[in-house]
Design a protein around this nucleic acid. Structure first.
Length: 833
RNA sequence: GCGGAAGUGGCGGAAUUGGCAGACGCGCAGGACUUAGGAUCCUGUGGCCGAAAGGCCGUGUGGGUUCAAAUCCCACCUUCCGCACCA
């Protein structure tokens, strides 16, 4: 008997698949489609098992859906612009393009060695001009619509990357790639994409995603967008009614309780407030001290500080005079940079006022019978909604009523208006780097900022450039690139030398897969109309906001440009867990990686795939275990031997897959094999369709294999055509997980067509059904015995048999049966007293 | 601090609708085959008591609902994740 040789089998089928274009797909209007996609990888070098998990999940799904008869689009490409290529260039004196392309070649070889069912004709690489010209094309369309603009702004600067970061790329005050490097603040001219124009759309359209996206991703996006509905209110400066300070508040209902007004330390009006005062010098000293103590996100426990500016404002509702303080916890970049201080109803204000002895005034009493609160009795702010008191004409209203009426009144009386603000900021995309998409803008002395015309795209990245790793755009040092002609007046002009954030590349790449070689447009809308939206997207949770919010934004822009008709690009999102070794995520920097190629060479890729799916449910983190993978290797060997043992006898026999029990007179063994086969089929199918828990699919198939082994020699008690039918189902169910072995065994059983194109077996509930059950017999909820019952036996009869079980007798002695509970085909519980 | 997820044998995990907790795999123990086994096949394997039959205990902790709870409710503990002076 031949031995299972994964190397030979896998090589054979990969070659055949490639030659026949097995996984090439074409749009076929009218035929049901399925678009399954794994997040675009960055070509960092060699692939390790930590990378392979989402490809394995995606490939199992793609293969399953093909067997269900769907037209499956399953592509892969490369997110090939980005900083590591420049760092490699510095370190090894190699051109970023060369480094990148050699990594791609290596990684692609691993993907091929794993037999992933990609349509490689659709492969894209974002650093190729054929791709990035469409980044420029989209940018220009956004520019024309005012969605791309340039402004001087304070930006996040990572000293390690030597470039600017978007807000989304700053985590806990540090760079997302260098989590121990605090970002610095710089003022630079930057290009922005106006994602805030879609704040409400990004929020509202999440309703379409509630069924298909993980709740925590939606929550993170909601928090990130940070919508606040409130009001803007203007406070006049006491003694100087021409000047005023605006605040934003979500709690205008508490405004009668305001006892001060706080300004952010770098509020522009602040220096002017104490300019004319006698103790100006002291105030400026305080101010400088306070500015040294502006709270950074990392130091939350730091103490609140502030000082009285010596000036007052007038509360436009109550007429009260309120002192103006500067406070270190007020954010200058959020809202108006000024807030009203309501210590009774805001915890931060409460703490500040207790420290500096400012008065506390209660204006909201809790509704619904709770004890009323008083300023003296408060130990913490009472921030809930309630009923207004001491609030002039608004006393007696509920918070809800007051919020609406008071913001409307503020508008009518000319000192305010309802306002909604967002935490979301526009997306800064300028990067002072070489290895990215050039921003297609030309600066002309006469004409100003001029977009590059479409027919001059792509603006190509020059090959020759000096990369220094220091903080200025490398392209600025390439005169052939910088010096150009103005497209409008033809005069001498200079090109923009910053490149785009690489998240621009990945914001729309999945559209390009539908039409990857189009030279006239980013894609044919008809191709997108057929394939979109993406049915299943699979990737890591680290992109919960970054990539996934940018992509949603791009989709909405495309929709408004008339390029797509859907609102959301991705219907279902799945975040797989990480692969760990030694309890921490596999990564090159930690040095705990298991190279994917090693696994393929040692065990075969089928074994590696089965392990990735079997060791844990896909959303959980998975610990790499050499013993675990050996178990999976044993399992595949076991399957191989099982089929091989029967193959010669079964090859000439027609397989029989009886449907229903009446048609065939079955032996006990046949019945048992068919039952287990169809029970397994139900479990595996449900795991694909509903549960997405492939660990239990693999376990179910293992059970089926064990069933065969437990009944060997099966040929003595079962007809060959029944055995063959069951083995075929077994192989089909294995195909999404271990496709090479499955193809080989399919052929071993005498088939000539490809297994990947064979239909998924039809489930027959009648064959799966049990006709006899072991009923658990409980007394007062504790298991005391078992009885056998045939399906459909009346409850009374089941109870009668249960009570007749001699094992129960000691527990029934001197007791009265109060009640019996019957769970059909499962359990009888006798309640006694 | 707020929000979310999780906590089950020696280990990874299973229990899909409240119905025998521990499927499947690893590990471990024993056996068969064998010159040999780190191959393969078979058996056993939550803890405690017991020769066995069987009994008691057991899903982070404490309470509750129920004939019946890993599963539902309340309180708490631990771990992980997200948000964090966002006015």
């Amino acid at each position: 008997m031949a031995d299972y040789d994964p190397q030979e089998i896998e090589r054979k089928w990969q070659k055949l698949w490639e030659e026949s274009g097995e996984f090439d797909t074409e749009a076929a209007p009218g035929r049901p489609k399925y678009y399954v996609l794994e997040m675009l990888p960055y070509p960092s070098g060699t692939l390790h098992m930590g990378h392979m998990r989402n490809y394995t999940i995606g490939d199992a799904v793609a293969r399953y859906k093909r067997m269900r008869g769907l037209n499956v689009l399953h592509p892969l490409g490369w997110d090939s612009f980005g900083l590591p290529a420049e760092n490699a260039a510095l370190q090894h004196n190699i051109h970023p393009r060369e480094w990148t392309n050699s990594n791609i070649a290596q990684m692609k070889a691993v993907c091929r060695r794993f037999g992933f069912s990609y349509d490689w004709r659709r492969e894209i690489s974002t650093c190729e001009p054929e791709y990035y010209r469409w980044n420029q094309w989209f940018f220009l369309r956004m520019y024309k619509r005012g969605l791309a603009y340039r402004k001087l702004s304070r930006v996040n600067w990572c000293p390690k990357c030597q470039t600017v970061l978007a807000n989304e790329q700053v985590v806990d005050g540090c760079c997302w790639r260098h989590d121990t490097t605090p970002v610095e603040s710089k003022s630079l001219e930057q290009w922005f994409l106006r994602i805030t124009a879609y704040s409400d759309a990004l929020l509202d359209d999440m309703k379409q995603l509630e069924d298909g996206w993980p709740e925590r991703v939606l929550t993170m996006q909601r928090n990130w967008i940070g919508k606040s509905v409130g009001a803007r209110v203007r406070f006049r400066l006491a003694g100087d009614p021409e000047r005023s300070i605006e605040v934003f508040t979500t709690r205008i209902d508490t405004i009668y309780g305001a006892t001060a007004l706080f300004l952010a330390p770098d509020h522009p009006l602040l220096p002017g407030l104490f300019a004319e005062q006698a103790d100006r010098a002291r105030l400026e000293g305080e101010w400088n001290e306070l500015r040294r103590n502006i709270l950074r996100p990392a130091e939350l426990s730091a103490e609140k500080m502030g000082f009285f500016t010596g000036r007052y404002v007038e509360n436009p509702f109550s007429g009260d005079q309120m002192p103006i303080w500067a406070a270190n916890f007020v954010l200058s970049e959020y809202g108006t940079g000024a807030v009203m201080c309501v210590p009774a109803h805001d915890q931060r204000d409460f703490e500040f006022c207790r420290k500096y002895g400012l008065p506390v005034k209660v204006v909201i009493q809790p509704a619904g019978g709770e004890a009323p609160i008083s300023a003296e009795g408060l130990e913490a702010a009472s921030s809930g909604y309630g009923i207004l008191v001491d609030s002039g004409p608004y006393s007696g209203l509920s918070s809800g009523q007051a919020l609406e009426r008071m913001s409307a009144d503020s508008r009518e009386r000319g000192f305010g208006r309802p306002e909604t603000i967002f935490r979301l900021r526009d997306w800064g995309i300028s990067r002072q780097r070489y290895w990215g998409t050039p921003i297609p803008i030309i600066y002309c002395e006469k004409c100003g900022t001029v977009p590059v015309p479409d027919d001059q795209l792509p603006v190509r990245l020059p090959d020759k450039v000096e990369i220094t790793g220091r903080g200025s755009s490398p392209l600025a040092g390439v005169p052939e690139f910088v010096n150009t002609r103005c497209p409008q007046c033809g005069g001498a002009a200079r090109r923009e030398t910053d490149t785009m954030d690489t998240f621009v590349d990945s914001s729309w790449y999945f559209y390009r897969y539908t039409d990857p070689h189009n030279r006239q447009a980013p894609y044919d809308p008809a191709a997108v109309a057929y394939w979109f939206p993406i049915d299943q997207y699979i990737g890591g949770i680290e992109h919960a906001i970054l990539h996934l919010i940018y992509s949603r934004f791009f989709c909405k822009v495309m929709r408004d440009l008339g390029l797509v008709t859907h609102d959301e690009p991705v219907m279902r999102l799945f975040s797989q867990g990480m692969v760990q070794k030694g309890g921490v995520a596999m990564s090159k920097s930690r040095g705990n990686v298991v190279p994917a190629m090693d696994v393929a060479e040692r065990y075969g890729c089928d074994t590696g795939r089965v392990y990735m799916l079997f060791a844990a449910p896909p959303e959980k983190d998975l610990e790499w275990s050499e013993q675990g993978i050996e178990g999976c290797s044993r399992f595949l060997h076991r399957v191989f031997r099982l089929v091989e043992r029967h193959a010669e006898r079964l090859r000439p026999v027609p397989s029989e897959n009886p449907h229903g029990l009446a048609a065939a007179s079955l032996t006990d063994t046949e019945r048992a094999l068919l039952r287990k086969t169809h029970q397994t089929l139900k479990r595996v199918t449900d795991d694909f369709e509903i549960r997405w828990h492939f660990n239990t699919s693999v376990a179910a198939i293992m059970e089926l294999v064990n069933e065969f082994y437990g009944r060997e020699p099966v040929e003595e008690n079962a007809r060959p055509e029944i055995i063959k039918g069951c083995l075929e189902h077994l192989i089909q169910m294995l195909a999404p997980f271990a496709p090479h072995l499955a193809e080989e065994l399919w052929e071993t059983l005498g088939h000539h067509g490809r297994l990947g194109q064979a239909a998924w077996p039809a489930f027959d509930p009648e064959l799966a059904s049990e006709d006899e059950f072991q009923i658990v017999v409980q007394v007062n909820g504790r298991v005391r015995g078992h009885v056998l019952a045939t399906a459909g036996l009346p409850d009374e009869e089941v109870v009668r048999r249960a009570l007749a079980d001699p094992k129960l007798a000691p527990f029934l002695e001197n007791k009265k049966v109060v009640k019996t509970v019957v769970v059909p085909n499962r359990l009888v519980n006798v309640v006694v007293r």
